[in-house]
Design a protein around this nucleic acid. Structure first.
Lengths: 203, 203
DNA sequence: TGCGGATTTGCACTCACTGCCGACCTGCGT
DNA sequence: ACGCAGGTCGGCAGTGAGTGCAAATCCGCA
């Protein structure tokens, strides 16, 4: 994998990771708003100007590889069995996303979840990404069930699923210990459980 | 109404409206990003600094009285009849919101819809407001059905509902000829149907 | 008419982000 | 081994949002 990258690309990837590490460390220690881009760049030993050739904005730093879950969902759609209905596919997709996310306990993920709750700019960005993901999933879902699902219906279904899960998650997180990674994962599981139960069996 | 306000308050309200008018005009004419706060303030004939004593940010200008729809929904919840289930109440709330919003044709609302689709910062703010509204509605819904709906379940239901509607709406606006009331109505219907059917039998 | 509290506003400042351009580095061909 | 070309880095200067502060101004009320 890494061997196939040129020296340039490897160095670039290393710098990118250094930026993420430095930023999470600083955010953790002094808070998001109190950490400037100059701080992060200095900690990663690059020029402040160069930061923006790695990330388009300060928030972007918190969402590297944001498309992993979308790909998982699209895979789940692609590998559907003939007797599965749209809702079944989405159910399986969300389940697989949950399983695949041991990433959920990474320090970055925990920090991200906390910042989403507390920093408006971060929450805004997260919601936008979620919406983009929804649109992408809905598109593939509609293509997977031609004739049965038009785009609007697919979008409604996807929106209902994602909305239910994130709504439940938000409610859980409002009254939970947000510093404990284990609690976060448990909340995640509970949220999908509660949100998706009404869809299990029939319809 | 206006008569009961002091001179100070009336002047304040007038200035506020002048800001909104000036801003919509400028946004319409030269675009959102190309319009500076200084421009808006100058057009409304106040100091640039004073702008921020009326609106906390540039985006806030586009969402005055954003709580109207939330209040309508809460009213709908409060005035439920004993035989209505949670899903029924949400459905009725949506209907009443739609009725009450002849605001939908105001120039501000049209501009806002366009900016939500094109300016990331505006979309982010809109999504945040939607999430806050969801939380508020879910809270009241849970309180209206004690024993039957806990907070997490109410949040899941509300999230599914809102997610479905906004997802369908987004899909419609993305692809189709916009502003066709009939298509909009149809989209709403399929969205609510998709979102609520699974909840009908159990809850 | 004049007082007291609130509103307005200019000023200076921080920070995110951008365009520009020269300095530097790396992969490639000779 | 060497130098060239294209990409990367990073300093500099600038814009615009947003904030704290303190003086000026205004309004309601006595």
């Amino acid at each position: 994998m890494l061997l196939f990258m040129s020296l340039r690309d490897r160095k670039r990837a290393r710098t990118r990771q250094a930026l993420i590490d430095a930023a999470t460390d600083l955010f953790e220690r002094q808070g998001y708003d109190e950490t400037t881009i100059a701080d992060i760049a200095a900690a990663a030993e690059i020029g402040a100007r160069t930061f923006f050739s790695y990330f388009a904005s300060k928030e972007e730093l918190l969402f590297p590889e944001s498309d992993g879950r979308v790909r998982a969902a699209i895979d789940a759609i692609a590998t559907r069995s003939p007797d599965e209905r749209p809702a079944d596919v989405l159910l399986r997709a969300l389940g697989e996303i949950n399983d695949t996310s041991e990433e959920m306990v990474s320090p970055l993920a925990a920090l991200r979840l906390r910042l989403i709750q507390t920093v408006p700019a971060v929450r805004g960005r997260a919601l936008q990404l979620q919406l983009d993901a929804q649109r992408e999933i809905a598109k593939h879902l509609a293509e997977a069930f031609p004739g049965q699902l038009d785009l609007v219906r697919a979008a409604a279904l996807t929106g209902a699923f994602v909305g239910a899960v994130s709504g439940a998650l938000q409610a859980l997180l409002d009254s939970a210990d947000r510093a404990d990674p284990a609690a976060l994962q448990a909340a995640m599981r509970t949220a999908t459980e509660v949100a998706l139960t009404p869809w299990r069996r029939s319809t």
